[in-house]
Computed example of a mutant assay.
Amino acid sequence: MQHTQPFPASTAPVTDSAEGDRLVGSDRVLAVLKELARHPDGVSLEALTRAIGSPKATVHRALAALRRAGLAGQDSRGRYLLGDEFLRMAFAHHEARPEHVRVRPLLEALADRFGETAHYAVLDGREVVYRAKADPPAGAVRLTSTVGGRNPAHATGVGKALLAHELGTLDAVRQWIGEAPLERRTPRTPCTAAELHRELRATRERGYALDDQENETGVNCLALPVYGTSPTVPSGAVSVSALAYRTPLRTLVEAVEEIRDALGPLKEPLR
């Protein structure tokens, strides 16, 4: 789960119609904000202009608005980056999320028990978004996944654990895929409707989801849904993500009941 995409840029076309001036202006400000998030070391006005595809003066006005709100700043080199107020709000909001508060101790316990990374993720369309993460004790090789990062749902254990509840038939899987093909992250990634349907059916039957180096070669995981807000609909999924050479998939499968028990009141059979 190392290759994550924290802030995908919008690909929506921008128009300059007079009727939509206010909306377009807001869209551009948000596009600049999202692009800043992709450059933790800062980015020049010229690079921002190229990335956004708007005139330099327009981007500069958007930056000025963000700076007035404390959502953007400028370093000593003149490069733009996210402002301290944005970071304060983001971290405060993240720490206050009810599921984050409840799940974090579980992730830490799992990371300590297996010496591997534990994640909590939610489904967002065709992707999963990582809401919390616990790394193994100091000294162990760690994954580079990040809170806020994204991965394709069909290629991940957490994604399949959640999709198994939503896509119960082959027709449902086909409709979910639609016209956009599924990305093949590794040779093992299920990329057809039939392959994904088989994976989701197996997930329901055994009660947990697996990622057998399907999202990234050398990394596997076991995932279980968690029920933080409803006894029947999962609010997200928890996974233990491991380096395959260090913790083979069979080791995680043999410990599935231990992992399930660690979820405490958030666990529920995946049936």
Rank of each mutant, 00 (worst) to 15 (best):
L163I: 12
A96K: 08
R150Q: 01
A118Q: 01
R250C: 02
V173D: 00
V103D: 00
K133M: 14
L110D: 00
T251S: 09
E254A: 10
V240C: 06
R102E: 11
E257Q: 15
R126H: 12
A12P: 12
A9P: 13
V158L: 11
D75T: 04
V219W: 00
T156V: 08
L170K: 12
D211F: 01
D21H: 14
A194K: 10
E19S: 13
E46L: 15
E268F: 15
S10H: 10
L23H: 12
R201A: 07
A51I: 12
P136R: 03
N220L: 02
G20R: 14
D211V: 03
E127A: 08
G25V: 08
R113P: 07
F86Q: 11
N220M: 03
A172H: 07
T117M: 06
P137Y: 02
G228H: 03
L224A: 06
P269A: 13
V219S: 03
K267F: 12
L252H: 01
T58S: 05
A161P: 06
S230V: 13
Q2G: 14
Y208V: 10
G178W: 10
A140D: 07
R22Y: 09
S230G: 11
V141Y: 08
S230T: 12
S26K: 13
M1C: 12
E257T: 14
G264C: 04
H60D: 10
L266N: 02
R250S: 07
